[in-house]
């Protein structure tokens, strides 16, 4: 997939806005847990990945729930 979403770690997602321009996805962090990120589709590239605050990304595995 084009853009800056995929890393050398586990990247997974099954949360997509209806028009396909916003994605919530999870990335394996250095502690072995998953953090939730948000990315935006600009043209053909997924950019602007934002790690959610520590209020959501706790020190444990967090996946997106819709």
């Amino acid at each position: 997939m084009r853009g800056s979403v995929n890393t050398t770690k586990d990247d997974i997602s099954n949360n997509l806005s209806y028009n396909g321009t916003k994605m919530l996805y999870s990335v394996l962090n250095e502690n072995g847990n998953y953090d939730i990120y948000e990315a935006f589709l600009k043209g053909a590239d997924w950019t602007g990945s934002v790690n959610f605050s520590t209020n959501i990304n706790l020190n444990q595995t967090t996946f997106c729930i819709v």
Partner: peptide
């Protein structure tokens, strides 16, 4: 995960050729 118009979808896979681990 699929867009509402059914044109695009996204999957996670650990197939060969990725950046490492699971990629989207």
């Amino acid at each position: 995960a699929m867009t509402a118009n059914g044109k695009y979808a996204y999957i996670a896979s650990n197939r060969a050729g990725g950046k490492g681990g699971f990629d989207i």
